[in-house]
Amino acid sequence: AEKTGIVNVSSSLNVREGASTSSKVIGSLSGNTKVTIVGEEGAFYKIEYKGSHSYVAKEYIKDIKDE
């Protein structure tokens, strides 16, 4: 089941290729951006990003809701 969340950062949140802080950064999301969460892996959520799937750190996503 998909969930949505809100990016909870003051500046921007790195979007990564994989579920690791050493993964390549492929983009960023600004605070209060709504994201669609399709899964989770460790400390990361797998999200829909620009037509494919990428990862963001869970600690920076708030207001998780089931869609």
Rank of each mutant, 00 (worst) to 15 (best):
A1T: 14
A1R: 14
A1Q: 12
A1N: 13
A1C: 15
A1G: 13
A1V: 14
E2M: 15
E2A: 15
E2R: 15
E2I: 15
E2W: 14
E2C: 15
K3E: 04
K3F: 10
T4F: 13
T4C: 13
T4Y: 13
T4H: 11
T4M: 09
T4V: 12
T4W: 12
T4S: 09
G5H: 04
G5W: 06
G5N: 03
G5A: 05
G5D: 02
G5Y: 05
I6Y: 11
I6H: 06
V7C: 05
V7N: 02
V7K: 03
N8C: 15
N8V: 14
N8Y: 09
N8M: 13
N8E: 08
N8D: 10
V9M: 08
V9F: 07
V9R: 08
V9K: 10
V9H: 11
S10T: 13
S10R: 13
S10K: 13
S10Q: 12
S10D: 12
S10H: 11
S10V: 13
S11L: 09
S11D: 14
S11P: 10
S11W: 07
S12W: 11
S12H: 13
S12M: 12
S12N: 10
S12G: 13
S12Q: 12
L13P: 08
L13I: 15
L13K: 02
L13F: 03
N14Q: 14
N14Y: 09
N14T: 11
V15W: 01
V15L: 06
V15D: 01
V15Q: 03
V15A: 03
V15F: 02
R16D: 01
R16N: 07
R16G: 02
R16T: 09
R16V: 07
R16A: 03
R16H: 15
R16F: 15
R16Y: 15
E17D: 13
E17W: 05
E17R: 06
E17V: 09
E17I: 10
G18M: 11
G18H: 13
G18W: 10
A19D: 02
A19I: 05
A19S: 08
A19R: 03
S20Q: 06
S20H: 09
S20F: 07
T21K: 13
T21C: 15
S22A: 11
S22W: 06
S22M: 10
S23D: 05
S23P: 01
S23C: 07
S23K: 03
K24L: 08
K24R: 13
V25D: 02
V25P: 03
V25T: 06
I26G: 01
I26Y: 02
I26D: 01
I26A: 04
I26E: 02
I26S: 04
I26W: 02
I26P: 01
I26L: 08
G27S: 02
G27M: 02
G27F: 03
G27L: 02
G27T: 02
G27P: 01
G27N: 02
G27E: 01
S28R: 13
S28I: 13
S28C: 14
S28Q: 14
S28E: 11
S28W: 14
L29G: 00
L29C: 04
L29I: 10
L29W: 02
S30V: 11
S30R: 14
S30E: 13
S30Y: 10
G31C: 13
G31M: 12
G31N: 15
G31E: 09
G31F: 12
N32S: 09
N32I: 05
T33S: 10
T33E: 10
K34N: 05
K34P: 07
K34G: 04
K34Y: 09
K34D: 03
V35C: 04
V35N: 00
V35E: 00
T36K: 13
T36R: 14
T36Q: 08
T36P: 02
T36V: 14
T36Y: 13
I37S: 00
I37Q: 00
I37P: 00
I37K: 00
V38A: 04
V38R: 04
V38M: 06
G39V: 01
G39E: 04
G39A: 07
G39S: 06
G39P: 00
E40N: 04
E40L: 05
E40I: 07
E40R: 04
E40H: 05
E41H: 08
E41W: 07
E41C: 12
E41G: 03
E41V: 11
G42H: 04
G42F: 04
G42I: 02
G42P: 02
G42R: 03
G42A: 05
A43S: 10
A43E: 15
A43L: 12
A43Q: 12
A43D: 15
A43P: 13
A43F: 08
A43N: 13
F44W: 14
F44L: 01
F44R: 00
F44N: 02
F44Q: 01
F44E: 01
Y45I: 04
Y45L: 07
Y45S: 01
Y45Q: 01
Y45D: 01
Y45W: 12
Y45A: 02
Y45E: 01
Y45F: 09
Y45G: 02
Y45K: 01
K46M: 13
K46L: 13
K46G: 02
K46H: 05
K46Y: 06
I47W: 00
I47M: 01
I47R: 00
E48I: 15
E48V: 15
E48A: 09
Y49P: 00
Y49D: 02
Y49C: 04
Y49T: 01
K50T: 04
K50G: 10
K50S: 07
K50V: 05
K50M: 14
G51Q: 06
G51I: 02
G51D: 07
G51Y: 04
S52F: 10
S52M: 13
S52L: 11
S52I: 12
S52E: 10
S52A: 11
H53R: 05
H53D: 05
H53F: 15
H53E: 07
S54E: 03
S54H: 10
S54M: 12
Y55V: 01
Y55W: 12
Y55Q: 00
Y55E: 00
Y55P: 00
Y55I: 01
Y55F: 12
Y55C: 01
Y55M: 01
V56W: 00
V56Q: 00
V56H: 00
V56N: 00
V56A: 04
V56R: 00
V56G: 01
V56Y: 00
V56I: 08
A57W: 08
A57T: 06
A57H: 08
A57K: 12
A57I: 08
K58S: 05
K58M: 07
K58P: 00
E59S: 08
E59P: 04
E59V: 09
E59D: 09
Y60A: 09
Y60S: 08
Y60M: 08
Y60P: 02
I61P: 00
K62Y: 10
K62H: 10
K62A: 11
D63R: 10
D63C: 14
D63L: 15
I64T: 07
I64W: 08
I64L: 09
I64E: 07
K65P: 09
K65L: 11
K65F: 10
K65N: 12
K65E: 11
K65I: 13
K65Q: 12
K65G: 10
D66G: 11
D66Q: 13
D66K: 10
D66T: 13
E67T: 14
E67P: 12
E67H: 12
